[in-house]
Design a protein around this nucleic acid. Structure first.
Lengths: 161, 161
DNA sequence: CCCCAATCGTTGGTGCACAATATAGTAGCC
DNA sequence: GGCTACTATATTGTGCACCAACGATTGGGG
């Protein structure tokens, strides 16, 4: 083992961002064969999770919950409507907001989806405790990243605030 | 707090895969303003890291190192060539393999890139120890996901091997 | 020598992700 | 009532990511 490699801050194997990207893509790949029979991609699955918990939701609500751009959600929701899991209709009180609701088929899908989390844990073969530990670390990183971005977007805030 | 929410295995806030996706996108977003002056996207930055460490590399080498599809790398490398950081040429000994090498400009870029990791750590405002801890957890997840996918691809392997 | 299988890279199709712009609806103000 | 911000979605363009199919090259066996 070379000392320069250990000290190299640009070495691929030292990059947290690289590990994060690879882990995210890898875990999604584990989900893929389980989601495919439901006709869902992983981002679509996350939208369904949000709806099962909180429907009806507007695009803005989903954007906040999933931290996704409205421009990403708009076509995704159309695809979910095309396969018959959600309905997209305008809110009567405010014609600007889109009310995304579940169809009967979309609600029924939840029973199938409940089999997924245990199947994933089983396939990964990791301790639940370790996954919860990872989840906590990720939550801290998410918070740190959000703070960093907010600061970058509004750099006029001085230390005094 | 509702007991059903705590027990709900489909709750968005319990999903490790969701935290992983959000964290990965969030951290990449912190990189974006730092990479933009270098004319690089985050995946392109990772390719450059691999090349600074190991150039020359074939598409297959990069695919293995970065865990990316050749179909993803092929157009990405063309863009890196278009901005003048890499050269794409066939290997003389085997005309099938593409030898990706750095240009002088690509090598020079490394000096700029060296400022990025400390800037990221500073912006995130997290302890290095915590980031290293996270890195270890992610490494374990990556291994677990790879094993899971390998098993799914070759299900004929029985326990005896 | 020639065919065959395997390997390497590219291409085309679908879908995600973000930025910038466009469109439509709402609300406050005069 | 009409003007003017402001808000919520939709659309367009670029780039990533995966899959399936293809073309070119290579190396082995008839």
């Amino acid at each position: 083992m070379d000392e320069r490699d250990i000290a190299d801050p640009l070495a691929l194997e030292h990059q947290v961002c690289f590990a994060l990207s690879v882990a995210a893509r890898g875990v999604v790949a584990v989900y893929r064969p389980l989601l495919e029979p439901l006709g869902l991609t992983h981002p679509q699955y996350l939208v369904m999770l949000a709806l099962w918990q909180h429907a009806p939701l507007s695009v803005k609500d989903l954007s906040r919950l999933l931290q996704l751009d409205p421009g990403t959600l708009s076509p995704l929701l159309k695809r979910l409507e095309a396969v018959g899991y959600v309905r997209r209709g305008r809110d009567g009180r405010d014609e600007r907001v889109l009310a995304v609701t579940l169809t009967a088929e979309g609600r029924a899908l939840r029973a199938e989806a409940e089999k997924i989390p245990p199947a994933i844990v089983e396939r990964l073969g990791m301790e639940v405790a370790e996954l919860m530990d990872l989840h906590q670390s990720l939550t801290r990183v998410i918070g740190a990243a959000q703070t960093a971005i907010a600061r970058a977007d509004a750099p006029e805030e001085t230390s005094a605030g």
